[in-house]
Amino acid sequence: MERLLFLAGCVGATMAAYLGVRRLYLRFNHPLLNVVALSAGAVIALLVACDIPYAAYAPAKDLMTAPLGPATVALAVPLYRHRDILRRHGPGLLASVALGAFLAMFSAGLTAKAGGLPREVVVSILPKGVSIPFAVEISRLYDGVPALSAAFVVATGTLGSLLGGWLLTRSGIGHPVARGLALGTVSHAQGTATALMEGERQGAMAGLAMILAGMLTAAFAPLAVRLLGLL
C-alpha cells in the first residue's frame, strides 16, 4: 500500500511539473523554456530534496513511459497528412535529410570520441539530432544510456532553435523549404517549433524532416557505430 502511494506520488509530481512548465511555455513561448529540461529539473530537485535515489523513482518511470511506443507510432499521422509534399519533393527531400542525419550522427560521435569520452557516452550522443523516442531506442539498441541521449537531444534542440535560424540567414539560406528541412533535421521537435514560427511551409517541411531524420538515423546507426569503432 505504501509502495503504491509512493508510486502515485512520483507520477503525480512528474505530471504536475510537466503541466506547470508546459503552461509557462505556452504563455511565453521562449526556446530556453524547455519543457523536458525544466520539468525533469524540478522532479530531480524534489527527489534530491527528499533524499530519494533514482532507483526508487524508476518504477514510476517505467509506468509512465509504457505508452511511449504507441505514442511514437502516432507520428505516422502527420506524415500521412503531408504525403503530397512527400510525393512532390520525395527524392530531394530524402537526400538532404539523409546527408544531414548522417553528418549529425558522425560528427557528434567523432568529436565525442576524440575528446576521450567513455564508449557508452559516445553511443548515447550519436542519436542526439532526432526526436527523443527514436533517440532513446537507438541508444538502447547499442548499449547507450537513454537518459543521456535524452539530455543530448534536448541540448541539441535548444541550441538549434536558438542559433539555427540566425546561422541559416547569415549563410544566405532563405528558401522556406531549405530552412524548414535544415531546422527539422538537425533539431527535431524544437527546430520544428521554431520553423513553425517562421511560417507554415517551413513548419510542415521541418515536421517531415524530423520524422524522416529519426528513421534514417536509426537506419544509419549500425554504419556509424562501425565507422567509429564502437562495436
Binding site: L99, G100, G115, I125, L167, S171, A178, R179
Partner: peptide
Amino acid sequence: YGAVLLAAILVSSLLPLLAVGFLTLFL
C-alpha cells in the same frame, strides 16, 4: 566532460544544418 560534450553538440548541430540547407538549395 562538459566541454567536450558541448563541442560535440555544437559541431554536430551547425555542420549538418548548413549541409541540409545548401543541398536543398542546390537541388
